[in-house]
Amino acid sequence: MDNYIKDRKVDSNEWMPFTGLEDGDSLPTGDIYVPLEEWLNARETLLTRNGRLGVALRNTDDPAIIKDDLERLDLVVLEFPKMADGRAFTQARLLRERYGFKGEIRATGDVLYDQLFYMQRCGMNGFELRDDQNASNSLKAFDEMTVTYQPASDEELPLWRRNK
């Protein structure tokens, strides 16, 4: 089991992380995602492949760095090195709302039941849950709360104006 949720369904993870790109001949096939530095160093080579491509950001990276590349990417991977580190919430909203990214925004690291609600509101739709989490039990976390006050990636207006 991949312990992976995509668009609110337990799914299998087709993507492979890929690092240590040394020469173009050894590029793997299939869907891969690479660290931002690899992408910046070898963008053209990576684009010669047939498989889908993703980029993994550190949570200190400004997503603006890849804003012009987003049309060529199918996945952006964000990290939660620990649960309390919430920088990727901002990154996700910027990717979705400011730069209009349509592909998958995936949460990795300390991805736990109680954050899923907030993560989806910020535009994340792929979740690599931490090993000890149970993906099918976690699906209900998305609907524990149904009332949202403020605009985010899932709502353009605050609650007080939606009611009008």
Binding site: G86, F117, Y118, C122, M145, Y149, Q150, P158, W160
Partner: peptide, 12 residues
């Protein structure tokens, strides 16, 4: 209202 369960700012 704006700050209650603000999804982006819950893990500052």
């Amino acid at each position: 209202q704006w700050s209650t369960f603000h999804p982006e700012f819950n893990f500052l």
